[in-house]
Design a protein around this nucleic acid. Structure first.
Lengths: 347, 347
DNA sequence: CGACGGCCCGCAACCGGTTGCGCTGCAGGA
DNA sequence: TCCTGCAGCGCAACCGGTTGCGGGCCGTCG
């Protein structure tokens, strides 16, 4: 089954290929009648312009790539990325831009840009290593539209979309202190990750100014089993800190499971605080630092789409807040459970 | 910043473009020395073959498309699709195949095939409408590699990956009957959806042969809020069925929230059974019919990859089973809670 | 010493659209 | 009547790789 080409249309109509091309592209130098004939035949024969040929002459593909930080099982097991993708895909859909992605530890996506496979790129999270960052900056000097989501390994001129984590962390510390906690445990992300270091030092500073101390720090792998392992580890410590902070919700979920299995009551014996506020957090009643994940994704795609069109998108800053639910004790007088409930973040 | 092309390499080396092309492609008719020179220069100049040009001559792009059934917010809010994507992306990663997708209600993906943007396509769930199915069947007659996931609207020759839902449903009914239930309520998917009809009639048949009856049937929209709404609706009925079956887990989650808000105890007052067993189900302790979602995705991609290579993948059948957790009562003598716990489906 | 064969490489066509430019034919103005 | 102007279309080059085929150069054998 050969695909029908411009030439085919031209042949059966007895005109030149260029005429057909122009007719389909609404070129004013084609007469209405000819244009009409061409369009009708194109419709009847089911003509679809070859994407490769078009991309070749137009020097761009109209596709935006999304660089996932790690391999598929990791990425898709974490609702954080799904939610980010939700935002990205949703504005991509409105803009009519298809998305190319491949979860991979290797920086394929940088090749995509050079090969012209994609015109723009959104790099998620700590997938961007310092080395890649340099390459990306070079590519951005060309016509590539690039946006980063999450804290890059070092300062960069590349457009970066990120939420200010301070407010959420600050109120979390305030609430914990008010509830009587003094010694905290922190389970942060992988040792090398920039965002994990940033969050850890933020927690430390914020805890200190609320009159608390972080007495144990662990590095998790940002997965649910990793969180469970961290929890078991923390349970062996003596004394056990009675409030645990997690670098993301996935690890907190794992910890909740481990705590239940160990017969430890939450929040009575230990309070648990997550980070990100992914959709399942509301279901589980996990207290967590809310980050507008979906909005971050949307904005990243908006930046890229705007860059592709040549104009620049309005700047926007994102913030965080504490979503207080059932895994933390309430301070003596304040009502604690969020009124949002399970339907949140879904529509 | 112009990209470096074959011609550039040829010019600086003083050879023909074709020579450079052959040298890079390990053509035996190029001398080792020339080949070496070419490769070195290519590396030094950072040459990357233009994807469009290559796709144009080779008549294929090396990309596989994934057709999402509805728009992004719906798809990514549902862990079912994330898990499917996890499987798909994971074998795509191994095969080195990038994935193109765009959540959209319109059949863009069929265009993708015709435009040569993608060589293969995986169509998810009830996104495949009867009309599209015809188109897809036509395209499959050509060289397109197509796989369907989930029940198609009608019988088709297209390779379809789907799990046998009968075993899971049957044991669910058996357990419910053993726990003393007699009258069930069913909240199934959208009215028009083929898979929803199939599941509904399966539940009905299975319940009947277990000595139970489905006394109320509602159509939900497969979302969490939809499930909550359905639950509120069911609570107004008189008498209230004391076991509720849901067409997917997302709706069951919503129902759980609504039940909690209404002060109804689960499973004492009403038992809740979901469908799919998405990862959060384990966290929440939702009893549900387990479907090997990730494996379904993996197999679909394997089918497509095999078809692209010209050979055919081994057939494989998938089954379901009941994952009994805390939202159903246990029968008098059997131990009920699954031993899997929270770490399931994560590694 | 000439012929023949094999190794390497260049020429040119092609994939399917896009686009600058030039040519034709007809209408209107001088 | 001749020239100008413009609308409408064709020619051909180009985008950047790929590939069939032909040809030059060299070594070897008769």
């Amino acid at each position: 089954m050969k695909a029908v080409t411009l030439q085919d249309l031209a042949d059966t109509l007895g005109v030149a290929r260029s005429t057909v091309s122009r007719a389909l592209r609404d070129d004013p130098q084609i007469s209405p009648t000819t244009r009409h004939h061409v369009r009708r035949l194109a419709r009847d024969l089911g003509y679809h312009p070859n994407a490769a040929a078009r991309a070749l002459t137009r020097r761009h593909s109209g596709v935006v790539g999304v660089a996932l930080p790690r391999s598929a099982p990791f990425v898709f097991a974490n609702p954080y990325f799904s939610t980010l993708l939700e935002g990205i895909a949703s504005v991509a859909e409105d803009a009519g831009v298809p998305i190319l992605f491949s979860a991979s530890p290797t920086p394929d996506y940088e090749r995509w840009l050079r090969e012209g496979r994609v015109d723009g790129l959104i790099a998620l999270g700590y997938g961007v290593r310092a080395l890649d960052l340099e390459q990306l900056e070079g590519l951005a000097g060309g016509s590539a539209a690039i946006a980063l989501v999450g804290a890059p390994p070092r300062a960069t001129e590349l457009p970066t979309v990120i939420a200010d984590e301070a407010p959420g962390v600050a109120t979390a510390c305030a609430r914990l202190a008010a509830a009587g906690h003094r010694e905290l445990a922190l389970v942060t992300g992988p040792e090398g990750a920039a965002y994990a270091r940033a969050r850890a030092s933020l927690w430390r500073a914020s805890a200190a100014s609320a009159g608390m101390a972080i007495v144990a720090t662990l590095h998790g792998d940002d997965t649910q089993p990793g969180g469970a392992a961290a929890a078991r580890h923390l349970l062996e410590q003596d004394p056990v800190a009675d409030a645990w902070l997690f670098g993301n919700d996935a690890m907190a979920f794992g910890a909740l499971g481990a705590l239940e299995a160990a017969g430890v009551r939450v929040p009575t014996d230990v309070a648990v605080v997550g980070f990100d506020d992914v959709p399942p957090a509301a279901l589980l009643g996990l207290t967590t630092v809310h980050q507008p994940i979906r909005a971050l994704g949307e904005h990243a795609m908006r930046l890229v789409v705007a860059a592709l069109r040549g104009d620049t998108a309005p700047d926007h800053t994102f913030s965080t807040h504490l979503e207080e639910r059932r895994t933390t004790r309430s301070a003596p007088s304040t009502p604690a459970v969020s009124s949002h409930g399970v339907t949140e973040d879904v529509t």
